[in-house]
Design a binder for these strands. Structure first.
Length: 246
DNA sequence: AAGCCGACCAACCGCCACACG
DNA sequence: CCGTGTGGCGGTTGGTCGGCT
């Protein structure tokens, strides 16, 4: 089976798998455009990358999804929508493709059957359409608008940003996303978002009790002064801190 | 035994974001 | 600023397999 440019398509043979494995073990992941040549494979770069990430990578777990994994998928999908890579990132050893396939086969079916059950019962609450705002990875430099405030009298730590720069950047998008997140968990606080009165955006002082269901707690959104200082180091990115805290 | 059908999942395709010259 | 190359993502397809008639 070959494509229009003579590139092989379809199922992978054991030989091809072994060649790809050997290549990745020798040169490491990445530089996928070089992989077909290095491995001696008549496959396109995308095909090689996909085969490794979804099947050959030794760090992936196969087999049935456990109940806690399913629960997490449901919650994360509600929060993030079809952002399979983000969802899979929270599921150790699962690939985005696995999660997507699982959703498309098992969960969608389950939800549609539940929907039928719900339709059979009288409506208790109207659920508004859910708007998903994509969180964007970003690096914040020393000159970023973020400012650190020390603990207040109640012991809460705050991180603020001026609304001027907040509005100028897509940071507002993240604030809104966080607001959506809390709102969705029933604990949205007006303080999350821009405030024209004090010219600041506030994070990290939310009552996030409902997140306990999510194996998260207040700590995940209220960084300590030291952590924020680390965050502002040039070699740290948003994802570094979030991964640490999540 | 043969044919049909649905479920599952590996793989492909098209698009987008980003880096770089 | 623009064009090109690359990596990565989500949607979709199609092959395979098992159950049912």
């Amino acid at each position: 089976m070959e494509g229009t440019l003579g590139v092989r398509k379809g199922a992978w043979s054991n030989l091809e798998d072994n060649l790809l494995k050997a290549c990745v073990q020798q040169y490491g992941e990445g530089k996928w455009h070089l992989v077909p040549k290095r491995a001696g494979l008549n496959r396109c770069r995308k095909s090689c990358r996909l085969r490794w990430l979804n099947y050959l990578n030794p760090n992936i777990k196969r087999g049935e999804f456990k109940n806690d994994e399913i629960d997490l998928i449901l919650r994360l999908h509600k929060l993030l929508g079809n952002r399979w890579s983000l969802i899979a990132g929270r599921l150790p050893e699962r690939t985005p493709n696995d999660v997507k396939n699982y959703w498309n086969s098992y969960i969608k079916k389950k939800l549609s059957s539940n929907k039928e059950d719900v339709n059979a019962r009288p409506k208790e609450r109207v659920i508004e359409p859910h708007i998903v705002i994509k969180p964007q990875p970003r690096t914040i430099s020393r000159t970023s608008p973020w400012k650190v405030i020390k603990e207040d009298e109640s012991g809460k730590k705050k991180c603020i940003v001026t609304s001027e720069t907040c509005a100028a950047s897509s940071l507002e998008c993240n604030i809104n996303w966080l607001g959506t997140f809390f709102e969705d968990n029933g604990s949205f606080d007006e303080n999350v978002g821009t405030s024209k009165e004090n010219d600041t955006c506030l994070l990290g002082e939310q009552d996030v009790t409902p997140l306990e269901d999510f194996n998260l707690d207040k700590e995940h959104f209220s960084l300590t002064t030291t952590e924020i200082e680390d965050f502002l180091r040039e070699d740290q990115s948003w994802s570094d801190v979030v991964d640490l805290k999540w």
